[in-house]
Computed example of a mutant assay.
Amino acid sequence: MPTISVIIPVYKVEAYLDACVASVVGQTFRDLEILLVDDGSPDGCPALCEAWAARDPRVRVLHRQNGGLSAARNTGIDAATGQFLAFVDADDTLDPDALRRAYEAQRQHKADLVIFNLRYVDEAGQALPAPDFSGFPDEVLDEDGVWQRYFSLQEQRIYYVVAWNKLYKRELFRTLRYAPGKRYEDQFLLPQLLSRCKTISCLGYPGYHYVQRRGSIMAQGSSRNYLDRSEFLLEWCTYFAQKGDALRAEGLLNDAIQNLGEKERFDLSTPEQRARYRTACRGCADGYALLACTTGRRSMWLRATLLRLGLPVYQKFLQSRQ
Rank of each mutant, 00 (worst) to 15 (best):
Ile4Ser: 09
Ile7Cys: 09
Ile7Asn: 08
Pro9Thr: 03
Pro9Glu: 06
Tyr11Trp: 10
Tyr11Asn: 03
Tyr11Leu: 08
Lys12Ser: 15
Lys12Tyr: 11
Lys12Trp: 13
Cys20Lys: 06
Val21Gln: 01
Ser23Glu: 07
Thr28Ile: 12
Arg30Leu: 09
Leu32Val: 11
Leu32Ser: 01
Ile34Asp: 10
Ile34Thr: 08
Leu35Phe: 10
Asp38Thr: 02
Asp39Arg: 05
Ser41Ile: 11
Ser41Ala: 10
Pro42Lys: 01
Pro42His: 09
Cys45Glu: 08
Pro46Phe: 09
Pro46Val: 01
Ala47Trp: 01
Ala47Arg: 04
Ala54Arg: 15
Arg55Pro: 00
Asp56Ile: 07
Asp56Asn: 01
Arg58Trp: 03
Val59Lys: 06
Arg60Gln: 13
Leu62Ala: 07
His63Asn: 08
Gln65Asn: 09
Asn66Gln: 12
Leu69Asp: 09
Arg73Asn: 02
Asn74Glu: 13
Ala79Arg: 14
Leu85Asn: 05
Ala86Glu: 04
Ala86Arg: 05
Val88Ser: 04
Asp89Ile: 03
Asp89Tyr: 02
Asp89Cys: 07
Ala90His: 05
Asp91Phe: 10
Asp91Glu: 15
Thr93Asn: 07
Asp95Ser: 11
Pro96Cys: 09
Arg100Gln: 15
Ala102Met: 14
Tyr103Val: 10
Tyr103Ser: 08
Glu104Thr: 14
Gln106Tyr: 05
His109Phe: 07
His109Ser: 09
Lys110Gln: 09
Ile115Cys: 09
Asn117Gly: 04
Arg119Ile: 15
Arg119Asp: 10
Tyr120Ala: 10
Tyr120Gly: 10
Ala124His: 15
Ala127Leu: 00
Leu128Arg: 08
Pro131Gly: 09
Pro131Met: 00
Asp132Cys: 02
Phe136Met: 12
Phe136Glu: 04
Phe136Trp: 07
Pro137Val: 04
Pro137Asp: 05
Asp138Arg: 13
Glu139Val: 15
Val140His: 03
Asp142Trp: 08
Glu143His: 05
Glu143Val: 10
Asp144Leu: 06
Val146Asn: 00
Val146Phe: 01
